[in-house]
């Protein structure tokens, strides 16, 4: 059976992984290579590497960064940021990318979606939509111009699918870095508008947030960025919690299958039965 995917978004700014808060404040986290290596060893299902400085400064994608970051990662890698031609995509594919994500280009040059899908297949093209809540409902947000557009995220997703997008990444600007949970009201209409897989992003704080969005909407994958960076084994512990209710892939050496967690994801004591079963040699009390 096809599993729901737990995805990590790694936001890179000027070559450094950052924590992004409401698309405006950035705190440094560390090197991309290290972040990807750890996420990989903790059993993440997929990684999205977004270079937010690339298209802001009108640069090309940072190929060397992608090449070095992907060297120790054996899970699918989607790369976004600064991609404005088929040649860029081809070069990224040679640097370890499996899919590419369009955000600004989907707004500025939507025909590029079709071009990319023709050459690399639509499974390779992810269209990333930033959405902001306004008085009239949700609207697509242009982070370069810092303004909302007329289209709703659902309309935009449907037109992207028609152009050849193979996946939609829907990101809530309001919830970005807020730890308030996923915005289900934003996500549901987008899922209803398309027949391609949808990835939700923005706001995850703990395993319960993943369980909520994965069970109450039609999304194929849920993504988080910040909260995976700051605790050891964040991915496998989160997946172990999710696996108690939903079907996710849990194949790491440390799978935490027998553990219980509190709502903040902290480990609780193992049940007495589990501890009992772990006893390797039982030493009876000596009678003298």
């Amino acid at each position: 059976m096809l599993k729901k995917r737990i995805v990590a978004t790694v936001v890179v700014r000027n070559g450094i992984v950052v924590q992004s808060i409401n698309f405006g404040r950035y705190l440094p986290v560390g090197k991309p290579l290290i972040a990807l290596e750890f996420l990989n060893s903790w059993g993440i299902d997929e990684i999205i590497l977004l270079d937010i400085s690339a298209s802001k400064e009108g640069q090309q994608p940072d190929y060397e960064m992608v090449r070095s970051a992907s060297a120790r990662s054996y899970v699918p890698l989607t790369v976004g940021g600064g991609i404005s031609s088929v040649a860029h995509i081809r070069e990224l594919m040679h640097c370890g990318a499996d899919k590419i994500s369009f955000n600004q280009m989907a707004l500025q040059k939507p025909e590029l979606i079709s071009e990319a899908a023709d050459v690399f297949g639509n499974q390779c093209v992810v269209v990333s939509i930033d959405a902001l809540k306004t008085a009239d409902g949700y609207r697509v947000y242009d982070y370069l111009k810092k303004e909302t557009l007329g289209k709703t995220p659902a309309e935009f997703a449907a037109s992207a699918e028609k152009l050849g997008a193979g996946e939609i990444l829907i990101n809530s600007v309001d919830r970005d870095g807020s730890y308030q949970g996923y915005d289900l009201d934003l996500i549901k209409p987008v899922c209803a508008a398309v027949n391609v897989p949808v990835i939700a992003a923005g706001g995850a704080k703990n395993a319960d947030d993943f369980i909520e969005v994965l069970s109450q909407t039609e999304i194929s994958a849920a993504s988080a960025a910040n909260f995976f960076h700051f605790t050891e084994h964040s991915v496998n512990r989160t997946k172990a919690s999710i696996a108690q209710q939903l079907d996710v892939r849990l194949e790491t050496h440390a799978d935490y299958k027998e553990n219980q967690f509190d709502k903040d994801g902290r480990l609780s004591k193992k049940t007495d039965q589990v501890l009992e079963d772990m006893l390797f040699v039982r030493i009876e009390k000596e009678e003298i």
């Binding site: 729901k4 995917r5 193979g166 996946e167 391609v196 897989p197």
Partner: peptide, 13 residues
Amino acid sequence: KPEFAVPHVGWNN
């Protein structure tokens, strides 16, 4: 069937 998104993306047994 419509409830199965295409492309088929993800981890499957």
